[in-house]
């Protein structure tokens, strides 16, 4: 996904004079050729994430469209107040593009992981959040973002599904159970593990790569009793929005995602998925227990 981001944004720099890229050393080498062609619009501020976001706010106030990029913990966690004030409070837009997701950097440890990024943005107004589940879903998101001044977060990951799905703000139903079947909503790269975990269960599986704004109306149409949300970031991040969408439906909810407990273990992303119960076996166990309890 990072390669697709670099390729697409580099093309946007050539095509659209509004496009700017702001970096804090991460991925600077990948943008070297673009920097050579557009030295005034490819800006590497060094290892200065507060400034990276402030510069993006200033660029946006002059009419440019900044794409801002780093590892998720540095882009979101570290510069939270700059995101809140230098973008939101100024009523300025930017496209924040992270890599690393929750635990792609499994062997690097907790300093390089950001399971809480989407929850942090949920404290702020007006953020669109894209969590692509496949590299081929990335370019259309980035190109669409060039055409407006919205505040947009694109959460790239090395985890992905086997195939890409079309870009839409609506939930997509990928497998339909009997009328009234429990609904399992998978966000981004959680889709393939969810499909594997529910292969022989009578459930409806829905998918979104744009969890903010959440398609509450679409969810309301699907859910009649049970809903399970599986997100690749902190478990329960979407619970407030799901509860609001289903406020007039008697129902039960289960929210699965990354746990709050710091693992203090290294290993691979697959290890972390297993430890957080987000591999197919773990998902299967949690979902079955929840549905059997009815």
């Amino acid at each position: 996904m990072r390669e697709t981001f670099v390729r697409t944004t580099t093309a946007l720099l050539d095509e659209d004079p509004r496009t700017a890229v702001v970096l804090a050393d991460i991925s600077a080498d990948a943008f070297a050729a673009a920097h050579h062609r557009h030295p005034d619009r490819v800006l590497n501020v060094g290892i200065r994430e507060q400034l990276m976001t402030g510069v993006a706010g200033g660029l946006a106030l002059t009419g440019l469209r900044p794409y801002v990029h780093s590892y998720a913990p540095f882009l979101i966690d570290r510069a939270y107040e700059q995101i809140k004030l230098d973008l939101g409070h100024q009523d300025a837009g930017a496209v924040l593009v992270s890599i690393g997701a929750s635990y792609d950097a499994s062997a690097e440890g907790y300093t390089h992981q950001s399971p809480g990024d989407v929850a942090l943005l949920d404290t702020l107004e007006g953020w669109t959040v894209h969590v692509p589940g496949h590299p081929d879903e990335v370019a259309p998101l980035l190109r669409a973002a060039a055409g407006n001044d919205d505040r947009i977060y694109v959460r790239l990951s090395s985890q992905h599904n086997a195939r890409a799905y079309e870009r839409t703000d609506r939930l997509q139903v990928l497998r339909r159970g009997w009328a009234g079947a429990p609904v399992v909503l998978a966000v981004g790269p959680m889709l393939d593990p969810v499909l594997a975990a529910t292969r022989d269960l009578d459930v409806t599986v829905a998918y979104t790569l744009t969890p903010r704004p959440l398609d509450g109306a679409g969810l309301r149409e699907l859910v009649s009793r049970e809903v399970v949300v599986v997100e690749p970031y902190l478990a329960g991040t979407s619970s407030r929005l799901v509860a609001a969408a289903l406020s007039d439906v008697p129902h039960r909810e289960l929210h699965l995602g990354v746990g709050r407990a710091e693992q203090r273990r290294y290993g691979t992303p697959a290890d972390h998925a297993r430890w957080h119960g987000l591999d197919p076996a773990g998902l299967r166990a949690s979902i079955s227990t929840f549905l059997d309890r009815a």
């Binding site: 700017a20 005034d40 800006l43 507060q50 400034l51 976001t53 402030g54 510069v55 993006a56 706010g57 200033g58 660029l59 946006a60 106030l61 002059t62 009419g63 440019l64 900044p66 700059q82 230098d86 100024q90």
Partner: peptide
């Protein structure tokens, strides 16, 4: 100052 740097760069 960060916003001003971005503004100067944008101009």
């Amino acid at each position: 100052l960060g916003l001003a740097a971005g503004t100067a760069l944008g101009l």
